[in-house]
C-alpha cells in the first residue's frame, strides 16, 4: 500500500512538474521570458488619455474610466484630491460630476453623511486609460447587444 502511495506521489509530482513547465512557456507576464537575474528592457510608458471626454460604460455597475490625468493627485490620510472636485460641495466650482450616491453607502446600504470609507481610495476602482492598443482582444458583449440579437427577427 505504502509503495503504491509513494509511487502515485512521485508520479503526480513529476506530472505537475511537466504541467508547470508547459504553463510557464505559455504565460506571458510583464517580464516575458527574461531570466530572473537579468534586467528586462522596460516597456514603453504610454500617455494617459486626458481628453476630458467621458467614456461609455460597458455595464451599469462599471466604475467609469477617469477621462483626465491624475498625476500627483494625493489620496491619503491627510487629503483626498479627487474629492476636492468630485464631492457634493465642490461640484459647482469644479463642474465635475458628483460621486454617485452609492459612494455614501456603507455595506448594509445605509447612507452616511460623507463618502463611505470603502469608497475613499478612488483608484481601487477607477483607472485612467492609456493611449495604446489593448494587449489582448476584448470579446465582451454588453447586455443590450445580447438582448437585441435575441429579439431581432432573423
Amino acid at each position: 500500500m505504502k509503495t503504491i502511495i509513494k509511487g502515485l506521489l512521485i508520479a503526480s509530482i513529476a506530472f505537475s512538474g511537466i504541467a508547470i513547465h508547459s504553463v510557464a512557456q505559455e504565460i506571458s507576464t510583464l517580464r516575458n521570458e527574461t531570466k530572473l537575474d537579468e534586467q528586462k528592457t522596460p516597456n514603453k510608458i504610454y500617455q494617459v488619455n486626458n481628453s476630458d471626454i467621458k467614456q461609455k460604460r460597458n455595464y451599469p455597475m462599471q466604475p467609469p474610466l477617469i477621462p483626465h490625468t491624475i498625476r500627483n493627485y494625493e489620496v491619503n490620510l491627510n487629503t483626498n484630491k479627487c474629492m476636492a472636485c468630485h464631492s457634493r460641495q465642490r461640484t459647482e466650482e469644479s463642474q465635475a460630476p458628483m460621486v454617485s450616491v452609492t459612494h455614501f453607502m456603507d455595506r448594509d446600504g445605509n447612507f452616511l453623511a460623507e463618502i463611505s470609507p470603502r469608497r475613499y481610495f478612488c483608484s481601487q476602482c477607477h483607472v485612467t486609460q492609456q493611449d495604446t492598443k489593448p494587449l489582448v482582444e476584448n470579446t465582451f458583449i454588453d447586455m443590450h447587444t445580447l438582448m437585441k440579437a435575441k429579439t431581432d427577427p432573423k
Binding site: E74, N78, T79, A84, R90
Partner: peptide, 16 residues
C-alpha cells in the same frame, strides 16, 4: 496647492 510637495491635513482649508 500641493504642486511641489505633499499636502498637510487639508481639513478646513478653503476649496477642499
Amino acid at each position: 496647492k500641493g504642486i511641489a510637495h505633499q499636502l498637510p491635513d487639508m481639513k478646513g482649508v478653503e476649496g477642499w
